[in-house]
Design a protein around this nucleic acid. Sequence first.
DNA 1: CGGAACGTTGAGATTCGTCAATCGGTGTGG
DNA 2: CCACACCGATTGACGAATCTCAACGTTCCG
Lengths: 252, 252
Amino acid sequence: MNERRAPRADEAAGMAAFIRKLSRRDDLSPEEVKAIEALKGRVRDVRAGDDIVGLRARVDHSTLLLSGLAGRYSAFRNGPRQFTEISVPGDFIDLHGLVMKQLDHGVFAFSDCRILEVPHADLRGLTEIYPHLTRLFWLETVIDAAIHRQWLLSMGRQNGPARLARLVCELYVRLETVALAYDRRMDLPMTQQQIGEALGFSAVHTNRTIQALREQRLLAWRDQEVEILDWPALTDLAEFDATYLRLSKDPV
Amino acid sequence: MNERRAPRADEAAGMAAFIRKLSRRDDLSPEEVKAIEALKGRVRDVRAGDDIVGLRARVDHSTLLLSGLAGRYSAFRNGPRQFTEISVPGDFIDLHGLVMKQLDHGVFAFSDCRILEVPHADLRGLTEIYPHLTRLFWLETVIDAAIHRQWLLSMGRQNGPARLARLVCELYVRLETVALAYDRRMDLPMTQQQIGEALGFSAVHTNRTIQALREQRLLAWRDQEVEILDWPALTDLAEFDATYLRLSKDPV
DNA sequence: CGGAACGTTGAGATTCGTCAATCGGTGTGG
DNA sequence: CCACACCGATTGACGAATCTCAACGTTCCG
């Protein structure tokens, strides 16, 4: 394990991003904000390419991603893996572990990541006192499920270019939300192999699909930097509608 | 809308199945059981082929499936639909609607269904009083997400026969759990078209994949009655592991 | 009888995977 | 500095999986 002491800055920023995300969905009382801010945990650094959470681990803490890009994946025994969600800073990667301690997946660090591991005992404590906050936490996991459904729809009913376009749109919107993308540009520290593992493609097919979008002048993509050249056309191709990400207010 | 007054029997059985399902995962206190049993709602009958919940409906109640087989689906505007989960009696079809009122999907009745619509106000009331019960409800929605992930893994990384086999295994286990399947047999009131909509197949390909499993003597399938002829071989082909359905005890 | 829904079959086109080779950039040991 | 290894991206060739279109069989029902 690679662990160093974290500068406080990152840590506070990650927690702030999480609180901001919740606030976008419903008003938090000052008490609730304080309760979240009071959450303590172990800060840990994970190197790109390592697992943040082992496959099918049994957990007694949930992991808040402070910085970096991570991906949840499922896999068959000794089989290939399939990413099922990409996480950006401010995401509680495995909040659902609070109620399902035996995980059914792993979490992989695409880039160097800094995480905060919050003990379930503390989170459970919150659920005993703050029903509204509990429902907001619950909502986070429900949105994960909505994202899974969107991926399922995409895998089941979209062709290659549309699937890739949809993934790019989702990642852009989510990264923009946490100020990690703007101007239609983003860093995307994933190899084409890994993109393929998220789309259900082989690495070769991923490469060819990227080239197709390049040729259609929808995006530029080199050295893991993506620039969206034609957002309207890209969202159109992807039939992308960000509603499922629940970025607007709706009391819980 | 097609509504009749429900005989009490079905209603009580559906609620009992739900309570049994929760109890399999963690012990319920007598109080908690009473609180669930006290849930009131409107009983409604929905005919096969109709929507139980409209696509992207906004809901103020959650739906407990009392009898029949139903499926959650997502779809693009004017596009084909993709089923993302199959629900059996005793399942709270859209419990997540409690915290995400604007749904991102619809629910379709494969067979005639009887449902109980429980007002969110009452459910929210429970969450204000019973934190442990709240976490158990939460767990139900988290398991939905785990099922989505399993479907994603299957769609992304399994070939046709394995995908179909996996779906059959899941449905058998879930139906058996609520005493609607036994002896390796089950009624499966879905057309091949609908099976395809769950697997991401065309209707033609679904048909041919079913035939492939027939020819391998893994199952018999006619008139929507399925008999699994070789469970070990089928689960092996499907790489099926029921763990993700969380059928065993694990305190929340 | 006629129509509708579902299952089945055949043929041909398209998508996608696999295998194998190459290219370019990066880092390391000498 | 060079030679080499390695990783990720790219390309070509080929075969397998899957889709689409169209037709036909069966069953059920009005």
